[in-house]
């Protein structure tokens, strides 16, 4: 659906995007992941035809962006990063304007889209008076109003509260079943929660491209079990846990001040929680918390974008 080959973008002497190539298939949700300033927004602006590449070929659908920008714009829905929407128009007037420029009949999908994005109750307010969360939803409605084949979302959940984030992610997942979605983010759990595929960008170059599941296995899954207990010292706890099979390291963890909290790092994906429980029962310690977490993607991200510093 989207193919990018040898794309380079320079601003003066600064290379924002350096010779990147990737393809995105139809019906795939792809996350563009990278630290701030990695070139995510620039790449998206080129995909939407807003910026011209310095060199390289970009095509969306069956159209090349340099030859047929208007056709590409027709099939793409785009949510820019800061959602720069005309503040002086009401939400209704604004969406009507977009709908008309997109050549959709006046009583087309406006109401349906507004309902999907949860903005029906602010339709008569001016966009400039809305909160960040609502603006983001209006921006999403703007991107979805023509039922686009390709959806490009630049940090779609930034500035939203946790409930809204879950809502927006669900909307994106729903759309991603049938359409092609590219979203950029620097939030790792977002990629794990929404994307099937992830492209990690750093300093304008692609450092990793693959399915989220594959990436995890290929880099080795580091698992951590966080526990908080009462009734012993940290040393007692650490020595008891270190003797377990599969434990690589026991570190001091974060927790309530009257509890002893540690993080147990494991060599592989072994399950040691029943063992920990048994130890606590035997020694008469009170177990307050026990949580198993996988830090695969975060570690991969750090390793790839920090240049081996961590």
């Amino acid at each position: 659906m989207i193919s990018v080959s040898n794309l380079t973008k320079k601003f003066g002497n600064v290379i924002a995007v350096n010779n990147i190539s990737f393809t995105v298939r139809k019906g795939e949700i792809t996350g563009l992941l990278g630290p701030n300033g990695a070139g995510k927004t620039t790449t998206m602006r080129i995909l939407t035809g807003f910026l011209a590449p310095t060199s390289g070929i970009v095509s969306v659908g069956n159209y090349r962006i340099d030859e047929n920008p208007t056709e590409v714009k027709r099939i793409v829905g785009y949510l820019p990063e800061s959602v720069p929407i005309y503040g002086d128009l009401t939400v209704y007037d604004y969406l009507m304007f977009v709908q008309k420029l997109r050549g959709i009949s006046p009583n087309g999908r406006l109401k349906q889209t507004a309902e999907l994005c949860g903005i029906l109750d602010v339709m008569d307010k001016k966009v400039g008076e809305l909160s960040k969360g609502y603006r983001q939803r209006v921006g999403l409605a703007h991107a979805l109003i023509h039922d686009p084949e390709v959806l490009i979302l630049d940090e779609p959940t930034s500035g939203l509260d946790p409930n809204q984030i879950v809502e927006i992610r669900n909307i994106i997942k729903e759309i991603g079943k049938k359409k092609t979605v590219i979203l950029s983010t620097h939030i790792l759990p977002e990629v794990e929660a929404t994307c099937e595929r992830v492209i990690i960008i750093n300093k304008g170059e692609i450092v990793q491209d693959g399915l989220v599941g594959q990436l995890k296995t290929s880099f080795g899954n580091e698992t951590v079990v966080k526990i908080s207990v009462k009734g012993c010292t940290e040393q007692e706890l650490a020595s008891a846990l270190s003797s377990l099979v599969g434990v690589r390291e026991v570190r001091r963890g974060e927790g309530a001040p009257d509890l002893v909290s540690v993080e147990v790092r494991l060599f592989s994906n072994t399950e040691i929680r029943p063992e920990i429980f048994r130890i606590c029962v035997e020694k008469g310690w009170v177990l307050y918390e026990m949580k198993r977490e996988s830090f695969a993607l975060e570690n991969i991200f750090r390793e790839l974008t920090m240049g081996g510093e961590s």
């Binding site: 939407t48 714009k73 820019p80 005309y86 977009v98 997109r102 050549g103």
Partner: peptide, 14 residues
């Protein structure tokens, strides 16, 4: 200034 040109120019208009 507001960046809304990005919205406008990514609509199918010349």
């Amino acid at each position: 200034h507001s960046g809304s040109l990005e919205i406008l120019m990514t609509l199918p208009v010349t």
